[in-house]
Design a binder for these strands. Structure first.
Length: 424
DNA sequence: TCTGGGGTCCTAGGACCC
DNA sequence: TCTGGGGTCCTAGGACCC
């Protein structure tokens, strides 16, 4: 029987914080977004306390802290490192693994030839124990014939009181049917808020109802995406394992501001800073971009204020990964979209239309070594700035990121020599 | 006072080509 | 009265994911 496993780290960011703070084992934990804006991760205790995903921190702060909860600002240096440790361990469990997100991976269990629920569950227990012992992160495991069904299994694993964290669905119609009937339609992978409303309105209540629907009708009324979901729910594989993630098609660097910005002279160094960061990412990817976009927006939550939101693109004469080219694009766009009299709350730079750096098409009248010379300059710049920024562009803000509120950030225990944990 | 950031895929419609 | 058919590429917007 050919089965897949979805391995999902439980309450990932909160669990990362707990590794180095065993004293917080039973304490409610929340982790906040950039700028300490809203809650992006919760431990089980915080969920039980009633903290919602995405809740604005300032609204829940008082009650949560009074009840003895512990808050952390996000520490992506830590989470990224712990994630790669988990993925390393998982890579030893299966030859084929797809890292789906920072806290999730799909494993192909084909070569394990699991023939029964017991065998599948035994594998799950083994995998969970190893990750817990070697890295310190608890994982939940859903085993099933298709990706969408592993998500179903993972959901059911969460619901269980006995044998928590592991659930398997074998490739047997009766087995699949029983599982699907227990899953509300909005819990199906690929059904978001909008689709939930439409499908519920047409009378579907659970995953089984969706799986039984008429495929040509689904395709006509919705899209091929939902058709795939239906087929996957029936046990037909439509989403393949993707072991080598395709190169990125878009790079975005954006931030909400700690303080609103209403003049161009304050805004442009910040946006330039986003541009510089975006280019660093682009060069790391080994790609060139042809299109630069800038967007700015006011806060949709301040309904009493006048709103403005816009995006504009600039096409480069020739694909580039040179920060100066991108900055000149930004310099062209920003004054065109900026409007006086608005309080901007967020901005971002978007790079797209990529080509591989090794297949650069030169312009007929361009100096042949122009691009290469730039490239060398950028490489040198990246080398100097490797660990922390030391050389800036004049137009780039130096406070763009440091102005971010991060009142409760934990040490970078595993990625900085100066922040290693000490043992007394 | 205070509400995240970074992605993907699909579809419809317009521009343009022969 | 009466104006083709088939295709590609690009863009904007919608929907979803973590």
């Amino acid at each position: 029987m050919n089965l897949l496993a979805l391995v999902d780290c439980e309450n990932f960011y909160a669990s990362c914080e707990r590794i180095f703070r065993p004293d917080l084992k039973k304490v409610p934990i929340v982790v906040l977004s950039n700028n300490d804006g809203c809650v992006i991760a919760r431990s089980k205790e915080s969920k039980d306390f009633g903290i919602q995903m995405g809740a604005p921190w300032f609204k829940v702060k008082e009650d949560f802290l009074k009840s003895g909860g512990q808050v952390f600002s996000s520490n992506f240096a830590l989470y990224g490192d712990i994630s790669s440790r988990v993925m390393n361990v998982l890579s030893q469990m299966s030859k084929k693994i797809e890292i789906y997100s920072i806290d999730e991976a799909f494993l192909d269990l084909e070569n394990l030839a699991l023939e029964s629920h017991d065998a599948a569950n035994d594998f799950g227990v083994y995998c969970r124990n190893i990750v817990k012992q070697w890295v310190g992160i608890p994982v939940r495991i859903g085993i099933a014939p298709t990706k969408t069904l592993t998500k179903v299994a993972s959901y059911l694993a969460k619901q269980q009181t006995h044998h928590p964290s592991i659930f398997s669905i074998t490739n047997n119609q009766k087995d699949i049917e029983t599982a699907l009937k227990r899953v509300p339609i909005h819990q199906v992978w690929g059904v978001g808020r909008r689709l939930n409303k439409k499908l519920s309105d047409s009378g579907m209540k659970n995953a089984y109802d969706l799986a039984c629907s008429n495929i040509p009708l689904i395709r006509k009324k919705y899209s091929v995406v939902l058709e795939r979901t239906v087929r996957e729910l029936r046990g037909e594989r439509c989403l393949a394992m993707d072991e080598n993630p395709a190169p990125k098609k878009q790079i975005v660097v954006s931030r909400s501001f700690a303080n609103k910005i209403s003049d161009l002279n304050t805004l442009s160094p910040v946006v330039n800073d986003f541009g510089v960061r975006a280019c660093e990412k682009l060069r790391k990817e080994g790609q060139l971009c042809s299109k630069v976009g800038v967007f700015i927006r006011t806060s949709p939550f301040r309904t009493q204020d006048r709103q403005h939101q816009t995006i504009k693109f600039y096409t480069l004469h020739q694909p580039s990964d040179d920060t100066r080219d991108i900055l000149s694009g930004i310099r062209w766009i920003l004054p065109k979209i900026f409007r006086h009299g608005f309080c901007y709350a967020k901005a971002g730079v978007m790079l797209s239309q990529f080509t591989d750096e090794n297949v650069l098409q030169y312009e007929l009248f361009e100096q042949i070594n122009g691009a290469r010379r730039n490239n060398q300059l950028m490489k040198t710049l990246d080398k100097i700035n490797h660990s922390s920024t030391q050389v800036n562009f004049a137009s780039q803000s130096k406070i763009g990121f440091t102005a971010m509120r991060r009142a409760n950030v934990s040490p970078r225990y595993t990625t900085s020599w100066f922040e290693l944990p000490t043992v007394n």
